[in-house]
Design a protein around this nucleic acid. Structure first.
Lengths: 147, 147
DNA sequence: GTAACTGCAAAATATTTGCATCCTT
DNA sequence: AAGGATGCAAATATTTTGCAGTTAC
């Protein structure tokens, strides 16, 4: 894990600092996407709020994480598996559970191709499905709190 | 138009006030979705900022408009064609143009059905495509500014 | 007339910027 | 040593809340 974190940072020409290591670790450990507020909580407010903003921005610029749009004014971020600075390849679906609040990347479900009206050119597609996730399905005994 | 606006408000048990009429008129005239800031600009700041927030909230509650998620922290709203208070039927794709900034509902392009992993139950799907719209396509001479 | 809506003030929250200091390389 | 990153203070922006006055019905 330590090596993986250092690797990601160095590969992206970011200096290896406490806040970056810790926040990147959070993303690696987390099963789902994280909003700014989540990160503040999970670091125990160890870092200045501004540092968290700046860290997220630089991760976003480098393509280490991607943002997941939402209609609730709480943008969430998740690790990019195959993104680079030039090319965001987030061709997967995001799932937002209304029960536990978790947002996860469904890496295996690919965004279907669609036919746009004449004249439109598509560059990027975001698909966010909301509903109930497998851990919150009624009758599921493995229910667990959001991480 | 006047009749249509009154009709929508009365049907939804909202009293017919200046701000509601004006903001609803904006949506009816607008080719695309509107963010809070757009509405303030287009009304010439005629109404208090708080009134705009409250008007948007009540329209949203009544199902008169729906929100369009985005990754840029600027939630946009668009008229619902077939939504009711209980059932938001926004089964269409939203298109966000990177050139003119307009966000439009592609009413004719329906969200394709997808197969989720076992255990997931889908309630609502949001699909936002970004790229270049037909009016901003290179070589298109009918280019026009965002409304 | 009454309930609902608006505008103003202010609080609460979220985000950005400048700068001096500290840390990584 | 030099450049970049951090923390603090403060500016700016966004959203919510309370309340008194106004408007719709």
């Amino acid at each position: 894990m330590r090596d993986q974190i250092n690797g990601i940072l160095k590969r992206n020409l970011l200096s290896v600092t406490e806040s970056r290591k810790k926040i990147l670790e959070l993303f690696l450990q987390s099963s789902g996407a994280l909003a700014h507020a989540d990160i503040e909580k999970k670091t125990g407010e160890k870092f200045d709020r501004v540092t968290v903003y700046r860290t997220l921005h630089s991760f976003l610029n480098k393509g280490i994480i991607h943002s997941i749009p939402s209609a609730d004014n709480a943008i969430r971020y998740a690790l990019c598996k195959e993104c680079t600075e030039e090319n965001h390849q987030d061709d997967h679906i995001h799932f937002q559970c209304k029960e536990c609040g978790n947002t996860t990347c469904l890496e295996d479900v690919h965004v279907p191709s669609i036919v746009l009206p004449k004249g439109f050119r598509s560059e990027r597609i975001e698909m966010v499905v909301s509903g109930t996730c497998k851990d919150c399905r009624p009758g599921n005994m493995h229910k667990k709190a959001p991480m």
